[in-house]
Design a protein around this nucleic acid. Sequence first.
DNA 1: GTGAAAGCGCTAACAT
DNA 2: ATGTTAGCGCTTTCAC
Lengths: 368, 368
Amino acid sequence: MPKSDFKYHAAVPDAKGPHKPAAKSDPGNGERPSVSIHDVADAARVSIATVSRVMNNPRLVSTKTAARVQEVIKKLGYVPNPFAQGLITRESRVLGIALPDIYGEFYSELLRGADGEARRLRYHLLVSSESHDDQEEGRRASPAFGLIDGLAVMITDANSPLSREARESAIPTVVLDTDLHKRGVDSIVVDNAKGTREATQHLLESVPPSRCYFVGGPAENFDTQQRAGAFTETLIASGCTPDQHQVTFGQYTLEWGRQWALAAASHHTLNGSGVLAGNDEIACGIMQVAEDSGVEIPRQLRVIGFDDTRLATLVRPRLSTVRVPMREVGAAAIRLLVQRVEDRTAEPTCIHLPTALIIRESSVGPAQ
Amino acid sequence: MPKSDFKYHAAVPDAKGPHKPAAKSDPGNGERPSVSIHDVADAARVSIATVSRVMNNPRLVSTKTAARVQEVIKKLGYVPNPFAQGLITRESRVLGIALPDIYGEFYSELLRGADGEARRLRYHLLVSSESHDDQEEGRRASPAFGLIDGLAVMITDANSPLSREARESAIPTVVLDTDLHKRGVDSIVVDNAKGTREATQHLLESVPPSRCYFVGGPAENFDTQQRAGAFTETLIASGCTPDQHQVTFGQYTLEWGRQWALAAASHHTLNGSGVLAGNDEIACGIMQVAEDSGVEIPRQLRVIGFDDTRLATLVRPRLSTVRVPMREVGAAAIRLLVQRVEDRTAEPTCIHLPTALIIRESSVGPAQ
DNA sequence: GTGAAAGCGCTAACAT
DNA sequence: ATGTTAGCGCTTTCAC
């Protein structure tokens, strides 16, 4: 019998240290019996080093020993303690993702993409939305810095405290929706300009430039700005400089769409117009008001949404919209993040994802 | 000068052990400089034990010392290493939540509730959807057992492998949507029966029982079964035993709603009927087909959805629906889970959350 | 190919 | 009130 067997078995049960931490097989409460690398080593009559090798670098172990150890591992249901592993390797295979909110089709789909990709790459995903923050003083439960290997942040508004924190904690980070790669941060951005141009040009096919409107989300929002910018440029290129009423900002909500449309209707500007909304919800709000006030879509009013959420195919008439590959955004963020985690010396990059106009019913048909 | 200062400083830099793990302040790559409890202890001229006490049990330390240590902690930006902590305390303050999918209003809202509650209780949330599984053999990346302190599982179909795993790993678990508290598992369930009864009775006010339909999701689904059951019972109570066409099962998708409605329309059963859909999406599908085939809602057809997602207020006519407090479900799950994590001896309980009929436009109005 | 041993950073018993 | 120390479970040199 190898000495390791003797040593461990003999030494441990007697040599009760002064510190008696979590139960090993404590009866009376429902603790996990928790089999450790020592248990495996003992049962397989090898040292813990060998067990470790079998798990992390099997080619350093003879096939025969490896097989025996594997068998014991299986029989005992051994799973390495991630805390102990992390203490040495400084890796948890957990990635954080911080979103401004996790509500609605948009974030939901993004998260789905991120989750799928993380799984594929054998990482776990720790989510955290910012929305519920700050109610109670400054106890900002930042997304487990120290535990996570990397963080994907979506920064909608300028420089949120979170991004600063991330920078300071020197943790691998990728930013969604803001191109910061010149500042040394990997980023994923969506090519808002392309889709916006296509949509605006599509509108201009049947609506005079002076009757085209952009109904955006919050003015501070990065996407909003790009979309508004591309809209304006396209109008200018067509020979019409839009006035201030043609480009407005509000919220990314259906309610804001309704508000805008109500105001527009009261100025009689709905009929004969074309509007590009900042997202599908806004577009839906506009469509609702139009319908309620007897303005026919698309005959009297053309409307195009943004994002291509399921909403777009749910409403009638079906909503033309600019598709944003939200799922791919989430997936790309994780892919890039993992890349960075596994090689921190790589050059910061920025992945651009395309947008494209999808024409459905709300923007086509016989001109008025 | 305390001896600890001498000991640590003198001993460590020279006594380079055989094992040289992760860089402490490795230049050349962008590692975190990582300040440890020792650094704080040194700088504050106390032992590491005192630093630990300041963080975990301040009342054991004199106010003066505590203040000094706190200052150093702040100056150095010290954050305890969660791996080292977890190794001893066996807690990570990370909770797992496993959902069949994370798509759509429903799961999105549930997740939002869970996230908010987790934050409130100072836990982190590790999500994982099952949908992306199993593509590549059996590499089931279970939700970080060993790392998480507890797991909230939503079991839609009978006994998924996940729930078994959870049981085996002896980790605190709460189950969503299936009452298992008799089997010793905390659970959160929604009182499907109440809302379903209300909805069915509401339908019966204007539609004869023989013209009432339940268009459910998957037959294996727990919620579906309860809803179908309550529907049938209510019909029976009103003196009509529903035939097999009146209670059907499919998917929780808009498409299934369309299919059902198409089939129904071809049998001329749409006009003059009342239908309770398994969820809002199905209801929307039915409404679309009805509209397309010229059946007016609510005049010729009454429809009620289930869940009260935003869809319900988006469509026209606005959808009557049975509200399910998805957000509260998520929050309650986390609350219960944390309770269990912090006291494993408590009796398993089952939290019931109510549902309630919300009457909007799709189910009321002048009878035909 | 395998084992011995150091030590990651921390908490908690024990000693003072 | 504070310090000393063992040890959580693991990975990894180093020696054989």
